[in-house]
Structures are given as C-alpha cells and as structure tokens.
Amino acid sequence: MVSEPSRRALDGRRLPTAVKIVIAGGFGVGKTTMVGTVSETQPLRTEELLTDQSVGVDDVSGVERKATTTVAMDFGRITMRDEYVLYLFGTPGQERFWFMWDEVAYGALGAVVLADTRRLKDCFPSVDYFERRGTPFVVAVNCFEGARQYDLEEIEMALNLGPDVPVMLCDARKLDSCKRVLINLVLHAMKVRGVGEPAALTAEAHQA
C-alpha cells in the first residue's frame, strides 16, 4: 500500500513535491474521463464550499440565511519516481466559478483544453482563460462518434489560436492517447518557459 516516495518521507527524509496539470474544456467533453484514464486510482472529488461572497451577490437575492453551495472538482494522482507526484485536476463545469479556476490553475505545470468538434466554441472560455493567465496549454480534440472528422488545420483555424499552441486529436478513453497529449503538453510548457532543450525529447513524444 505504502508507495515508494511515502516510505522515504516516513523515514524522515524529504517529502516529494507535487505538480499539477489542469484538464479543462466545456461541459461533458471528457475531462473526468481523461483524469480517470491516466490516474492510478479512481478519480477523487474535492469540494469547495461557496458562500454568497464567492458566488456573487446577485445569486443570493431574497435568500435569508447565508447561502452555501458546493462546487466539485475531479482529480487523480500519478506517482512518479524522483520525488514527484503528479495530480490531474478536471476544472468545474460551471464557468461562473472562476475563483476555483484561479485556485486550480495557480502553480499548474500546464493545461489541456479538451474540445469537441460538434461544439467547438464550448472550449473558448478555457482557451481565453489560459491565454490571459499565461498558463502553457495544448488543445486536445476528442473524437466522439458521429462527429464529422475535421482535419487539424481546420480546427486550428476555427480556434484562432496563437501559432505555437499545439492542437492534437485524442481519445480520452485511451491511455496511449492521453499520454501523448500530456507529454506534448509538458514539452510545450518547457518551450514556453524556456526550460532546457526539449528537442531531444520531442522525437519520442510523437511516437509515445
């Protein structure tokens, strides 16, 4: 049960460092599916309690007592050697909870924006958000059955992304596909942040 890094920590050595990647995109686009596909356990769920302050006054008009509601995020864990633990967080579906996005995007290594070609514009708020925030991100286009097959160039044009933002097709249900998306995101984040020489690592990523 006790994984390698935790054993080391219990021996009084040093604790691993956690990193996170955010999985965003519109409603029902496959965020939870992707978290589940790559995580070592079933996705867990974390809940924030919202008070009227965090939601905004208009939402509680006419409500006597302090209104509370919860907003949930799915997340999963991947334990890595070398003292790192990776967490994947699916953003909450409701976009009005931007403060949650801020919390989950803060300190993220990068983000995957999932898109569905049948409703491409559902991913615009996520794209805008990470662009504005300066979080490195890639767009992964989920291939749902019954959706017309677009080629990537068409999609890139429609999304009107910066020239360097990687766009790729994926299937959130398949491990290999999710791995490829995530590895490409990490390489992209290195490039954006000017870390190291990702060129050597890139070749392998494409076949990953």
Partner: peptide, 25 residues
C-alpha cells in the same frame, strides 16, 4: 511540502521526471 511556486517552475528535473513518469504509464 508546499508545491513549487509558479515563478520558479524552471527546474528541468521536474519536467524530465514528469515526462518519464508519463511514459512509464
């Protein structure tokens, strides 16, 4: 252990470890 602050995500070991970890899945 607090996570690495956003401002210093420039440690190449972090990126390499994550890539290796993902490949190993």
């Amino acid at each position: 252990q607090e996570p690495q602050p956003e401002a210093d995500m420039h440690d190449i070991r972090l990126y390499k470890a994550v890539i290796d970890g993902l490949r190993a899945l």
